[in-house]
Design a protein around this nucleic acid. Structure first.
Lengths: 408, 408
DNA sequence: ATATTTAAATCAAATGCTTTGAGTTAAGGC
DNA sequence: GCCTTAACTCAAAGCATTTGATTTAAATAT
């Protein structure tokens, strides 16, 4: 899988059927419904929906839940999406850890495993992944695997440095190698984008078609879903929010900028702050426990950081609102819930934002799924998303096709 | 047309054919090709491509350009996209002016008209539009009309104020009314998004699938195309770049923010600066002529503005790069070419950007189409884009469908 | 109670496109 | 000249959706 949209593929009857299956599944994931309702919503004939439903029931992806007696007429047989009908794998690779989750189609964890990584070369890690997967194969069918790593990919001065560096992980090669190693279709993406999809599937953004997800990993990531589709950009690096400048002339970042958001609002930044204040040992261990503790005590050192971080985040969220016009912005990832809640409470969002819309139905900012497994669940969500969301298929270029013509 | 992606529609044989037509046309718009090549690129059979081509040739959208003798085997008959095969209309409505362009499918102008608007109520303006269209109907088929207005739509404190306000122009109603008035399919969007599509069709971004277009209108707009699709956001307000904060604590903007980009880099900002410097009469007339003149003289007052604007733009472009990961960022719109060139020359882009990518093939920033007709051409581009780009069709909700479930 | 109305679901063609496989045409290479 | 390669065409087959007539089942009216 590459990130450029090379050439959109043509369709035939089979592709059309696959599309319609996704339409039906996607609708049913939102709410249980009878066949006639689905037909009306999708524009398909009831007969077609009947045929598809019969297949989906056979496969176990959908289950009838009895008749609904509502108005006149024969009451419809209501069908519901069956999360237990199949499973998916999600892998998150970080320089020091490999995380695997096995979830059902609802995103509910069946198995979670974390193992430390001594080496980070793809061959070794893929071997570990295959081993883990082998050891936890469920009885239900496994539809595919998601694989996420921290971004950005292939950026001078950003990718090779810092604690998230994974050398030799080429986005163009890895998915194919992973498919070979796992024997499953593999969906590859960066952690924040995947985490955003997870949030849209079962979390705070469920049911939304346009939203932004700020992901606290080591740094700060961003996944944006616009009109139901994740934004990936030309090289899969969209959403590199950690290095947007919120304080011109502010703290120097290793990326070369001054005043990067990540310097003010990230795990690393709070860790550094607490070490400097003597609230954490110099090696920075025990951050999560300390955060919970300090938060409970309303520790002033922490509050100082919260205010600074909230100011920086407010600017960033204002930006995201004006650039992406999301239904809402969600904050989640590897920080304690209570801390994220506090950050949200301390936000002062800029007034000049398209988020102040008369048609708005959602809060501007919400807390999403927290915890260190967020990205791995996101990886699983990549597969689920692919299963239930209609899409435009791309075709890989065959022979030395021009990848992107030069800007004239 | 609404901006929420309500529910994706199912496909049948006819829809499939329409999709495949777009695939073929889209490929041919990039480069002339033989049928076998198109088949290979699209994954369709040669027979299908043959059938589609026969239709497209009959309709005049595609023309054979002779055989290409290349390697062994029977030389392919090469077909080219025929821009003259049909025409499209583009309308731009501003509070004081209605602009219409009639272009061929290559985006080349056949007719351009501007008329002043005394009233801005939709009924009157739609009447004027119908009148203009009527008066300039070409002999070739007209595929549709694009209609653009300045954004944002429905935003408290932004939409109703300032020189771009068009009260009573409801994005949910206008397209339908326009279709009735014109008797053509109408594509509605905000000016900058449409202008971006135009740039991707024939301008600096042609052939690119991910790019950002900064549009100098009265204020400063942004259109973003990601993976071939324009980003519109939940309410069609994505790309409201004028009100992102580039100078925290800087100049007060009427939106309520301090330090908005628009205060530093826009027609209004340079106009205000030149008036303050006495280089322009207090009513601000004659801006364009003055700009050309002052530029030729390397006027110091103007240079001061250019440096300030370039600094603000550099920050904004850095942001866009990190958030959208475009192949390049294009600057265009209602400023003289030479001034845009100078702005680009004076940029100092931040180093911490995913644009510093090893796979990069395009300049980070380019000048695009300038002139006051940019947005109207963009409106026309909406129709052309729709004609040649495969898409996921949405279905309008039928009866009291939940438009967007509340963020839980 | 019984008949009527309304709506869902099924059955059995029919329809629309795409694909397949055999055959034809036109060029380069030996 | 003959073989190979590749593009293209023709006719039949295949796949999935649609259409129109029927059946089923509940709410309402008589």
């Amino acid at each position: 899988m590459s990130f450029h949209l090379h050439q959109i593929a043509g369709k035939n009857a089979e592709k059309t059927k696959a599309h319609n299956r996704r339409v039906v599944l996607g609708y049913l994931r939102g709410q249980p419904a009878g066949r006639a309702e689905i037909a009306k919503a999708s524009g398909l004939s009831t007969q077609t929906v009947s045929n598809l439903m019969a297949e989906l029931v056979t496969e176990g992806l959908v289950v009838p839940t009895g008749r609904r007696r509502a108005a006149r007429g024969q009451p419809p047989v209501v069908y519901a999406f069956n999360p237990s009908g199949a499973a998916v794998l999600g892998f998150e690779v970080r320089p020091d850890t490999l995380t695997m989750v096995l979830t059902d189609l609802g995103g509910t964890a069946l198995v979670t495993r974390q193992i430390p990584l001594a080496q980070t070369d793809p061959a070794h890690v893929l071997g570990q992944m295959a081993m883990l997967a082998q050891a936890h194969m469920p009885h239900m069918p496994v539809l595919g695997a998601g694989l996420v790593i921290p971004g950005p990919f292939g950026v001078d001065g950003l990718s090779g440095v810092g604690p998230t560096a994974l050398p030799d992980w080429d986005p163009a090669q890895i998915p194919l190698q992973a498919e070979a190693a796992l024997g499953l279709p593999v969906h590859f993406d960066k952690d924040a984008t995947a985490a955003a999809l997870a949030e849209g599937m079962a979390g705070a953004a469920s049911g939304l078609s346009s939203y932004a997800f700020l992901y606290f990993g080591t740094g700060l990531g961003l996944g944006v879903v616009a009109q139901g589709q994740p934004i990936r950009g030309a090289f899969g690096n969209a959403g590199e929010v950690g290095h947007i400048i919120v304080h011109p002339g502010g703290l120097i970042c290793e990326c070369g900028n001054a005043g990067c958001l990540e310097q003010y609002a990230s795990r690393l930044s709070v860790q550094r702050h607490l070490i400097a204040m003597g609230a954490l040992p110099p090696d920075g261990t025990g951050l999560d426990a300390a955060l919970v503790q300090l938060l409970a005590n309303q520790n002033q050192d922490l509050m100082v950081w919260v205010d600074t971080a909230a100011e920086a985040l407010s600017r960033a969220i204002g930006l995201l609102e004006n650039l992406f016009d999301p239904q809402c912005t969600v904050l989640g990832g590897a920080l304690p819930d209570a801390l994220i809640d506090l950050l949200i409470a301390r936000l002062s969002l800029p007034p000049g934002s398209v988020a102040r819309h008369s048609g708005r139905r959602n809060p501007r900012v919400l807390r999403g799924t927290s915890g260190t497994l967020t990205a791995a669940f996101g990886a699983a969500a990549l597969v689920i998303h692919d299963t239930v969301t209609p899409r435009l298929d791309a075709r890989a270029p065959d022979i030395a096709a021009t990848e992107s013509p030069p800007c004239p």
